[in-house]
Design a protein around this nucleic acid. Structure first.
Lengths: 222, 222
DNA sequence: TAGAAAATCTAACGCTTGTTTTAATCATAC
DNA sequence: GTATGATTAAAACAAGCGTTAGATTTTCTA
């Protein structure tokens, strides 16, 4: 029945888009793997691109909801004080990895896809994808500014870019890395803790000395 | 003449692969932009994939050579002592950004491409690409272990993965980010310094407490 | 049970792709 | 000026692509 067909398409799409990339995944390969008819993709989803959007949306919604939930709790506990930066970073980085555990093998596929999709160049897709993140990114940016008052908005913005880069890359390649090399004895929770630690340290680090970088250094001359 | 044709193909390819991705760049679009005949690609390069490899090789060779040169100097200065971790990280991260400055607009394209190519899924291509990095990665891994003796090989490996992720993402999207948002007043040197600082802090951070993670914590029970 | 809606199927459309083949043109050396 | 090799051009090959149109089957509801 229809619900089963849609689910099978979504699951195979998730895996193939993650492993081959979106442009290099053909609907014929995908539907053959899913044992459904190729016209079903357009019937149920409308287009190949809409399928990708659907694949991501079904996972990102709960991930981002969880992120905001955790952040709400942190801000609520902090009241008028300063939220802890590591807690904020943990609230951002943990949900995709934790949802991945909940979702089993499908979660692995999702995580790889989410990591890789950060580098997707298709303009139309990027606009849609960013819409799903804009609110989250802004909320976390503000929280980090509160947590780290030595940084101005520019510094926070750049450091979030660095943080997102390491998160995405780890999502995309963490499992491959773990299976072939020095990461071999690092289990998923250890790896996530390492990432959080790394990001928290980098985020909290002093602004480079000698470089005019923003409001925090307004009184200095370069 | 031939040298001009090859150069034009390489330059346009670099730009198109960076902006559209490899699979989504057609040789017809590319050769039309370069005002050369489509058969020239196979004549001069052999295949589309070989063209990508050539685009990257002409830039990566000097970048990686520079990385190793800088690392040699650092290790030489350190003698039997401990090299400075931030210096090692700077030696890894600076060359692509500095070569980018040398190369002008073409350098911008190259940097974006290099960032994005880290997420390319094509297995054949990845094998070739990794070959170019294997030696560099190993050398820098060893240098960082010496610089940060509290970390074992596993920790260094994972942190290098995080570092490469933020570098690649910044290469790919740093300019876009700088032109639209909070990064707007961050010039390229500032941004590179921020990245180095972020990575150096993350790299040097203590191993997470409470998580059994390797040789450094061998005597603890989880 | 009948009819309508939903879902699936088949065949095709119209187009694009990287690569190949052959011919034409260019460049160089003697 | 001629011969040879290098280079470019044109046409085509063979395959594949996402999407569409119409037919058929399945599901659901009154």
């Amino acid at each position: 029945m229809a619900a089963d067909t849609k689910e099978r398409i979504l699951n195979v799409a998730e895996r193939f888009f993650a492993d081959r990339g979106f442009p290099a995944t053909s609907l014929r390969d995908l539907t053959s793997e899913a044992s459904v008819n190729i016209a079903s993709v357009n019937y149920h989803f409308g287009s190949k691109e809409a399928l990708l959007a659907a694949v991501l949306e079904r996972r990102l919604r709960p991930v981002n909801a969880r992120r905001l939930e955790l952040l709400d709790a942190i801000e609520s506990a902090a009241g008028n004080g300063t939220p802890n930066a590591e807690d904020v970073i943990r609230a951002f980085l943990s949900p995709p990895f934790q949802k991945r555990q909940e979702w089993g093998a499908a979660g692995d596929n999702f995580l790889r896809l989410l990591g890789r999709i950060h580098s997707e160049t298709n303009e139309e897709f990027r606009a849609t994808f960013f819409q799903q993140f804009e609110g989250v990114f802004r909320r976390f940016g503000q929280a980090l500014q509160r947590a780290l008052p030595h940084l101005d908005a520019t510094d926070v913005g750049w450091r979030m870019l660095f943080l997102v880069g390491s998160m995405a890359f780890t999502m995309a390649w963490g499992d491959s890395f773990a299976s072939i090399g020095p990461g071999a004895n690092k289990d998923p929770d250890d790896m996530l803790e390492s990432l959080i630690q790394y990001a928290a340290a980098g985020m909290a680090s002093p602004v480079p000395i000698g470089v005019p970088v923003g409001l925090a250094q307004k009184g200095r001359t370069s």
